[in-house]
Nucleic acid binder design. Structure first.
Lengths: 146, 146
DNA sequence: CTGCTAATTGATAATCGTTATCAATAACGG
DNA sequence: CCGTTATTGATAACGATTATCAATTAGCAG
């Protein structure tokens, strides 16, 4: 169960601090979400936990993802086609590289986003509070398949 | 009816070139979408044309937006909450500044996106084909209201 | 201008992801 | 161990979008 840094512990601690209860389902969902590098859908989380929680409802996954999102411990990566994905490893906005073939999502380290944000603020007069930066393309694996 | 450059004409020409028929509804939708600076929803387009086409179905708006999107003449700006918006003025990816209070969308001119795209390609090995860059914040008007 | 044919329209049902509802269950403090 | 209250599971409701289908109409040939 490879969670990096203490993301799982951080999520659990936040839940405890806000006096929400620690159910086995909730903890299992937190563990999947804190599992590094993944960006699972709600369906995938549900599927992944089916073995251990055969009766767990899809609604429970939705509810807990929403809870952790509202606690600021999970970030939603929403798409217009409804294929929303979730990230409990890095709950703050960061750029993505998304393969349009296999839907894999990487988190590249990118410089210059701060500058760009300031440039937008200067030009528009907006007070920027967040951003969403996605680059779409073909990953090396899918390019090899062509 | 302030359409800039020849966006309306370009959309109509593309439709004609692909042997789709030019119905009054289709042309009216193209005109709204080519109206500069706006980023209307399907509902807003439907509402806006209610006076001139009282019987026009919402399905017709959806169908024609989809058609123009597939012809590459209209760009979709999709959000996870389902509030999708459309832009017939600039059918190619470009950054947005989005007010989280009034939902206004501006199109700032931004430098450095090319470089950033190359940086992603270098770091991930992806072949980047498109992007989506949104900055969320509070516009000057809404900040004044606080 | 007239009539033909296939695309388009309008009305509405179906779909899909997500949220709400509610009775049954379980966490947690006493 | 008990009681209170949040949480769960099952399912209905919801909203945006898409599919369906009969009626209409654009575009074209004569």
């Amino acid at each position: 169960m490879p969670e990096k840094d203490g993301r799982f512990e951080a999520i659990i601690e936040k839940i405890r601090a806000k006096n929400f209860k620690l159910t086995p389902q909730r903890m299992a969902i937190a563990r999947v979400l804190s599992d590094g590098g993944r960006h699972p859908t709600v369906e995938e989380i549900h599927e992944e936990l089916r073995d251990r929680f055969p009766t767990m409802s899809l609604a429970t996954v939705y509810r807990n993802v929403l809870l952790m999102k509202s606690l600021g411990e999970v970030m939603e990566i929403g798409f217009a086609d409804g294929s929303n994905r979730y990230d409990g490893m890095r709950p703050h906005p960061h750029p993505h590289a998304i393969c349009i073939a296999c839907r894999e999502i990487l988190d590249p380290e990118l410089s210059g986003l701060e500058d760009m944000s300031e440039e937008v603020a200067r030009e528009t007069g907006f007070e920027i509070v967040s951003h969403r930066v996605d680059f779409f393309g073909i990953c090396p694996k899918c390019r090899a398949k062509k």
